[in-house]
Amino acid sequence: MKEIIRIVVSLTVSCIVAAFVMGTVFAITDKAKKHNEHLNVHETVLGLLGYNKANPAPSDLRLFTMYRYIIEDEKTKNLGYMVPVAHEDKEGYELLVINLKGEFVERLRLDIAPEKVAEEPDRKSALRAVIKPPRTFTYADSTIIAKLGGKRLAYLLPGAFPGFKTFIEVMLALDPSFKIMGLEIMEHEEDPGLGGEIEQAYFKNQFRDKSFEKIKGLKVVKEPLPDEYFRYLEADKTKEDMISRKEIAEIKSKYQDKDIYALTGATISSRSVTVGVKTIIKKFTYRVNILDSVIAGQRIPVTF
């Protein structure tokens, strides 16, 4: 009996100590983790817009995030856009409900501070206050809108689609005319050396500068990547000016309307990225046009 008590006591003590250690570490690291995640996204966004250490982002560049939800009850389904708005210089968020035909339904004020909006639980509790059961809401996706000096500079679309093995997560940058400004692969589990090459500049930069018209019919071709094009695509990496400005412009115009060259030994990965990018852009362009017309029609003071 005495032994049992000793065992129980010592196990309890060690569990409490362990829990204390882990709890403390969690409390310390949790904030840093979230901060770093946001920083990572921020850096990717800046990278896609063409800013880096040598060419820092101008101070009047601002990023706004818009969240899309699906709002439904038993009968109807609507889309709800959480859009950043400014009322008399005070920034906040509003929920803009649009029906499936693209007509305005209602707008609801949300009680959420702009700096808290990035956290999913905070968004949920704000939405719960205005959307009462039986209406439910489910998160669909988000869009980042970059604004420079009062004008829209780019749309940044995070997205995911199935690759060769598991999901590939990407971030796409489109300019206001829906031309691709850049593609960044955020996460993937393709085979290293084969499908894993999708994260290399010579593949992902092929998407750069493709126009919206071209994207609609974008295909993958199984041809070897021409040498000069390879050098052009990898130009960001090489520090010394291996190719002149004139040459860059020449190669750019030559290959701008070409299809995507498949990676050797990873045609399926290349194809799934191309199709995935195509789908994301198509859906987005359809929606953003509707959203813009609703915003204009309702005179909603959006910040973007």
Binding site: I70, K77, L79, I98, L100, G102, A140, K283, Y286, R287, I290
Partner: peptide, 11 residues
């Protein structure tokens, strides 16, 4: 007929 993918009811 009208058909859409479940997460995108508007398209």
């Amino acid at each position: 007929y009208s058909i859409y993918e479940k997460p995108d009811p508007d398209i």
